[in-house]
Design a protein around this nucleic acid. Structure first.
Lengths: 154, 154
DNA sequence: CTTGAAAGACAGCGGGG
DNA sequence: CCCCGCTGTCTTTCAAG
């Protein structure tokens, strides 16, 4: 895999903000002609730096008003039980983010739901999956910032 | 704004997973011809259900290996100080998500950084912005699931 | 890297059923 | 909703400097 130069990083900064731009517009912004700019994009996609192109939806407009952070401490730390737990939690579509953590908390989930009763149904399914020592749900009142574009070093 | 029917929801489920598909491919999957499918997409974009189209990058491949959840309890709850705090934190590019919370924790941030020393630099900037009663940083060891596609009710 | 050109795919929009 | 077809833009590839 080749190195990523300053122009590649500029291209990445552009497409992770707006992937609907044409090659011509991107090429103009980074000071290239279309052909080399297109080749760089192909290379960035082939090497996996660009994973995929997606459409971002408005959560409220598809009926998902609630965001909850769930912190979990498990009781049983045996590998087999944890692997099954990870697979089952990943399969739940309400779970958007799922991290294994350092420190006192074992897992953190970011969960979306239409309303509190839907979240409660999710919660009950979650705690029945395996014996959990502690589960803390923190409800978001307001999303102040929600960014998918990564900060790319210059 | 018109109602969103089952076909609209199917279109949304497709494009939030892969926005590189052509109109023809989407139309085929939902059982429409190109023209009405294209009109539905236009309407979904005009009404703001589809916010924008972006490219998703691999964090590790752009040198962002660290994800940290930061929980904040503020000391001063006066509106003016909080508004300034919210604006300043939002402006920090390491902050990808920033929520105001219900309960004991006032704010939760999801922060990315190249390494722990870069996070430490961020942390120092953060705690100097205003007097904070408690700031807890939890480091992610592993991202088990990271999903941008919202679960759309059938 | 550049320009220029060519072929094909696709979006975007109309008319008609 | 369907199909047909037009028009222009864009992608993708090529040759040549």
């Amino acid at each position: 895999m080749r190195i990523m130069d300053a122009i590649d990083r500029r291209i990445l900064r552009i497409v992770q903000k707006d992937a609907s731009l044409s090659i011509y517009e991107i090429a103009t912004q980074v000071g290239l002609s279309q052909t080399p700019c297109w080749k760089r994009l192909q290379r960035l996609e082939a090497s996996g730096v660009i994973k995929r192109r997606i459409a971002l939806l408005d959560p409220a407009k598809v009926g998902l008003g609630i965001t909850v952070f769930v912190s979990i401490q498990v009781g049983d730390h045996s590998g087999k039980a944890l692997a099954r737990f990870a697979a089952e939690v990943s399969a739940m579509e309400e779970v958007l983010d799922f991290y294994r953590m350092a420190g006192d908390v074992d897992y953190v989930l970011r969960v979306v739901a239409p309303d509190t009763s839907a979240f409660d149904a999710f919660y009950k399914r979650l705690i029945e999956m395996m014996p959990l020592k502690n589960v803390t749900s923190r409800f978001a009142l307001e999303s102040i910032k929600s960014e998918t574009a990564l900060p790319i070093a210059t």
